[in-house]
Design a protein around this nucleic acid. Structure first.
Length: 513
RNA sequence: GGUCCGUUCGUCUAGGGGUUAGGACGUAUCCCUUUCACGGAUAAAACACGGGUUCGAUUCCCGUACGGACUACCA
């Protein structure tokens, strides 16, 4: 029997969860579900200087909103907790000491100034890459160069120190990445990374390996930015003697800027006018606000579908996938290798698709909410009519309210360009007659068909070709030159309101032809 | 600079030694239609470059170019 698949999403709570992080979480979730395994959330808060209040909750809420909640998390602990690294602090030191005992790590007492001096010295000597490594450590203050007595003394007197990994001078580090294949790195290009910081907290590298091991993680699916440090991680597994249970790695291609070059960043969203975060976020320190996909009007299913296809595809030509279908179709092998530019137009297309297939009642609820927020109320019936009218023409739920303003408000001014082209004596004659007919009372129900029949008979009676004046009719009643089916609009407005608007237009618009 | 990773239409991608290099978004045109959308149809649009290997390379290999990540007591 094979081991149960366990994967984790391990963000740091340093701000709003980036959309790229959300995609990483999604892929982890899909893989876990596909394999019948578990998806865990571990908060990597080992850098207390960067901790941002609210960030954890933001991560949780984002995942919940997307429908990809973890099976185990700080809020839903399984039996390998705690799920916050700050709460696991006590355990890391013993692992670091174990490494020292095995000869794979050492104490280092160098001050920031000494490290800086070392880098300057190496740069001056034209060393291409000044780093703390198997060569330079022989000239630094650490437990490899100092006498055992002095080390003991410094430790006892509370001298600040870090623990560094002792990397081999010459060794090929080779590991298999599920997405990239074999990756080969020579240990001489690696440096002696800090494992334990002087504040007693582990760095990412140590905490990550220890926790993944302790939590039984079988697959590490993370961003490509981790690829360069993966060899160090492999070495650490080896040092600990955990190589046989080392997780498999899969390094995801990055999300890139839509235009030029580089990794997609917060600024891009601001600049190009689309969100790069799942939810709205206000930085608690600077007060800076960032908009979210949710508040912009993206449906979770649409965002899910869009995100899944940024770097992955099912291998056939289907594009619309529910979460369940994504789970069914997902495989790590089909994740691409190259970076992916973020194209918001495609996201909109997905959103339109999902919006059109949404339940009528949901859309009515959106519209009624917006109306309420604007200080009015819309009856369920009227909201329903508006939703039916606009359903195929909107991108976001908020568009229902925005694009139906002409229904809630009679025009006070008219599109002058359309007026100059389309408003003429024939139109005025027809509208005059139509308004009179409406005012003299119409049989209920006044639906789109009835409105149209009456308009057609009026046109016939006045001898005016309807096709020639339709746009003028629209202009008179809505103030606009284009829009949804006019007769349905009339039905929603009702005969009295239509007549009233026509009278106003007749009084206001000058005949130019 | 160094190390590592990558490169098929504008974008997301399928494909893979011999194909009219397929799909989707976007764009354009046409149809539908009282307008605008929706929908339908059609079109323009790609294998970064140079060497190999091969009967044949977009596909395999090597270079070059370009892009990206990393290069902290951040993750």
């Amino acid at each position: 029997m094979t081991k149960e698949v366990r994967v984790r999403f391990a963000p740091s709570p340093t701000g709003a969860l980036h959309i790229g992080g959300l995609r990483t979480a999604l892929y982890n979730y899909l893989f876990a579900r596909k394999m019948g395994g578990k998806f865990l959330l571990r908060i990597e808060d080992t850098d207390q200087t960067r901790f941002v209040p609210g960030a954890e909750e933001y991560i949780q809420e984002s995942l919940d909103w997307m429908g990809i909640s973890p099976d185990e998390s700080p809020w839903k602990p399984g039996d390998v907790g705690p799920y916050r690294q700050s709460e696991r602090k006590a355990s890391y030191m013993s692992y670091a000491l174990d490494l020292i005992e095995k000869g794979h790590a050492y104490y280092a007492f160098d001050t920031a100034e000494e490290l800086e001096a070392m880098r300057e010295r190496l740069t001056a000597a034209r060393v291409v890459q000044p780093q703390y490594n198997s060569i330079t450590r022989t000239q630094m203050k650490n437990s490899l160069t100092l006498s055992p007595e002095e080390v003991k003394e410094r430790l006892a007197s509370g001298d600040p120190y870090v623990i560094r990994a002792k990397l081999p001078l010459k060794e090929e580090v080779r590991f298999h990445d599920l997405i990239r294949g074999w990756v080969l790195v020579h240990s001489s290009t690696l440096d002696d990374k800090v494992l334990m910081k002087s504040d007693g907290m582990p760095t990412y590298h140590l905490a990550n390996i220890v926790d993944d091991h302790l939590m039984g993680i079988t697959h590490v699916i993370r961003g490509e930015e981790w690829l360069p440090s993966a060899p160090l991680h492999v070495l650490l597994y080896r040092f600990f003697g955990w190589e046989d249970t080392m997780p498999q790695f899969a390094h995801l291609p990055l999300l890139l800027k839509p235009d030029g070059n580089g990794k997609l960043s917060k600024r891009d969203g601001d600049k190009l006018g689309f969100p790069v975060f799942p939810l709205n976020w206000t930085d608690p320190f600077t007060g800076e606000k960032s908009s979210g996909f949710r508040e912009t009007g993206y449906l979770p299913d649409a965002l899910l579908n869009f995100l899944a296809f940024l770097g992955w595809n099912p291998g056939d030509e289907r594009e619309i996938f529910s979460l369940d279908e994504l789970i069914e179709a997902f495989s790590i092998e089909r994740i691409g290798k190259s970076g992916t530019k973020f194209d918001i137009a495609k996201a909109k297309w997905f959103n339109e698709h999902y919006l059109r297939s949404s339940a009528q009642e949901d859309l009515i609820a959106y519209l009624q909410q917006d109306a309420q927020a604007a200080g009015t109320t819309l009856s369920h019936e009227k909201a329903g009519a508006i939703v039916s009218l606009l359903r195929d023409r909107v991108t976001f739920p908020g568009d229902f309210w925005r694009d139906s303003q002409f229904i809630s408000h009679a025009p006070i001014e008219f599109d002058l360009e359309v007026a100059s082209k389309k408003w003429n004596a024939d139109a005025a004659t027809l509208l005059q007659a139509y308004a009179t007919a409406l005012e003299s009372g119409v049989a209920a129900p006044f639906d789109g068909t009835a409105a149209k029949a009456l308009l057609e008979s009026t046109a016939e009676a006045t001898g005016i070709k309807l096709g020639k004046v339709m746009q003028a009719v629209r202009l008179a009643v809505t103030g606009l030159g284009a829009g949804p089916d006019l007769m349905e609009v009339f039905a929603i407005l009702g005969p009295q309101e239509v007549a009233k608007r026509i009278r106003f237009a007749l009084d206001t618009l000058a005949i130019v032809d």
